[in-house]
Design a protein around this nucleic acid. Sequence first.
DNA 1: AATGAATGAGTTTTCATTCAT
DNA 2: TATGAATGAAAACTCATTCAT
Lengths: 206, 206, 206, 206
Amino acid sequence: MQSDGRPIGLKRNPIIEEARRRQIIDAAIETVAAVGYAQASLSRIAQHARISKSVISYHFAGKDDLLEQVVTQIYDDSWKFIEAALETEDTASGKLRAYIRSNLDYLHAHRSRALAVGDIVRGHRAPDGTPRFAATTDESVVDLLTAILRQGLADGEFRDLDPQVVAVTVGQALIGVLGLWVMNPAVDLAACTTELITLFDRATRK
Amino acid sequence: MQSDGRPIGLKRNPIIEEARRRQIIDAAIETVAAVGYAQASLSRIAQHARISKSVISYHFAGKDDLLEQVVTQIYDDSWKFIEAALETEDTASGKLRAYIRSNLDYLHAHRSRALAVGDIVRGHRAPDGTPRFAATTDESVVDLLTAILRQGLADGEFRDLDPQVVAVTVGQALIGVLGLWVMNPAVDLAACTTELITLFDRATRK
Amino acid sequence: MQSDGRPIGLKRNPIIEEARRRQIIDAAIETVAAVGYAQASLSRIAQHARISKSVISYHFAGKDDLLEQVVTQIYDDSWKFIEAALETEDTASGKLRAYIRSNLDYLHAHRSRALAVGDIVRGHRAPDGTPRFAATTDESVVDLLTAILRQGLADGEFRDLDPQVVAVTVGQALIGVLGLWVMNPAVDLAACTTELITLFDRATRK
Amino acid sequence: MQSDGRPIGLKRNPIIEEARRRQIIDAAIETVAAVGYAQASLSRIAQHARISKSVISYHFAGKDDLLEQVVTQIYDDSWKFIEAALETEDTASGKLRAYIRSNLDYLHAHRSRALAVGDIVRGHRAPDGTPRFAATTDESVVDLLTAILRQGLADGEFRDLDPQVVAVTVGQALIGVLGLWVMNPAVDLAACTTELITLFDRATRK
DNA sequence: AATGAATGAGTTTTCATTCAT
DNA sequence: TATGAATGAAAACTCATTCAT
């Protein structure tokens, strides 16, 4: 529960509040990326942010709330970036290429977010094991890609493919290439990006 | 540490011993599949196996040991299945198809193993966040696929592709499709298998 | 590990902090004195201090840390007392007498400390049996006595004796007499003190 | 409780039984000497004896029983040795010298017993902290020495000393010198023996 | 005579959370 | 707005003991 000491009325300073919230969210992302969801305790997150543990309790209702905001933040943020890239393309194949490229570019620029978000979505559950995120997340990516692929099918751009399966494949391929690069930073992510674009171009065209 | 009650010598009864070991390993797999690595405590695993917590300590040196044996068991088991499928093919493209099919077939038949193994490999770390499995696992899959793809390149079967990137893509595509099916068992995994085979056939051929 | 709840910086309240630390250290001493090192669990110590078990984890990094501070505290404390007594004497024989008397007086006033410190120093070890205190403790007493005896030899006050053996003998005699009194509080510790002073006076003079 | 499987009637083989009992007792002594009472679990003792843990349960009613027999064994054994030495002397001062020498000789020959016995007597208690050995042990040594000293007083051999205090001092001096030698095997125990004999000769004579 | 298997009680430690200030 | 202090629940693990064979 959020601390009762939290002011209810007018005294809140939304600027400081927001800065702290961001700082804590960033620390949570870095911590999960570094040690994995299962080892990412509030203590460790606080330690990373160089703040007291109770500051987290003050700004967030609890661990659930924090992680929910972390995930939301990352999805919103990445979506802004990808959306802008998609808007520059009209054809489905162009959008597919733009999606792959913008996605990898974003992940390239925000490695820890990419690492953290999957871990949290998969790992964060109720004490009884019930997922706390489920469909909200991966599905939105798959849904977007599915929509692009359906458009391409309708426009006659693509061969007769199953949009959902290909969408999932694209999504996971991105994660896979990212994982490769994360484990071994020597991997040339730009080259991988080109390779993936070629691969799915061939895999989808008539 | 393994419970000190554990006999040191060779005289232990291998039948009961092995049965219990399997029972506990299976319970661990089911538990991780059901509630996720982070929630899979020894208590819960014991509860699932309907045994006392300390029976686990008796048969395994600790949580590390148990999870290591779980992963080993799954990898060994699936490898036997896949290996047999690969041996029926001579060409690289045939082997690629066989790999995709046998892998999905195995996962289809052992859903919880598929769910558990990734979670454990990703989640199980030292207290300081250092991975405990890392290379042993995903790499071996990627290495196998890379070898198949290299053979295909040498034999002139494939277009000029980057074997490692494609290998990773294939591996992750499998995980992705599996994930799709796991979240939504209504997904037609057989259809997905066919789709993936087509996809990577097109993506790799000249 | 110290509970992660523990603030890292410098801002902690030193008054409450110190009070609790002392309270816990005292409870540890009383508990070890009452039930012996091997039976002195953190539970029992917490019970004795009438606090929750986790308060100990909050203020100390662990059992090791607590016991180390217990021993340090007792040694520092007793040393202050003995040092003051030694400073009132110039001759070696005077210092020897002062050491015996002040030591027994201190132990007489703090029976549980006397009981606990030996038990902890002897009993507290790494899981593999390696001592955790060893030389730090008994040696410093022996070293002090050895120095006094060497001074007496140099000044021609004492017969030709082996300073180390006599030092050990004195040290152990004190422990022995104390043990006698501890087991049987009816023993007249003051009389024992006088007796020991006479004994070692005779044993060392020319 | 002793295992119910223990044969009650005539089938026991007292020779094998006795050999095992001794083996286990010896292992217990070595283990306590090596790692200290608090770390000397039945597992570790069994490991040391290279037998199964349950063999101990078979031959002893429990840990209490085992440790009691360990202590009894050591006291009986050392007493035989010391008694023989005392019988060669008539005067109290001769007996005192003989006691010191024979005691140190015995300890010298059985270092682990010397280490273990004190640790067990001090450490072994009921779960509530109540001692399990108490007076039985150290007292018998002190009683013997006290008797010797009383005889010397009665015969006019000694100065007017407090027999109990001196007895305790002698006993602890022996332990102290032994401890010195145990910590640092380079210490010349024979020289220490001579030194102690001189010391207490001077400390007690008229 | 011996021992593998099993277990419940108890160990230290970590954690998310609450509360008073 | 912030945080030190406290706590109960639960984690992994160890131990002496019991029991069936």
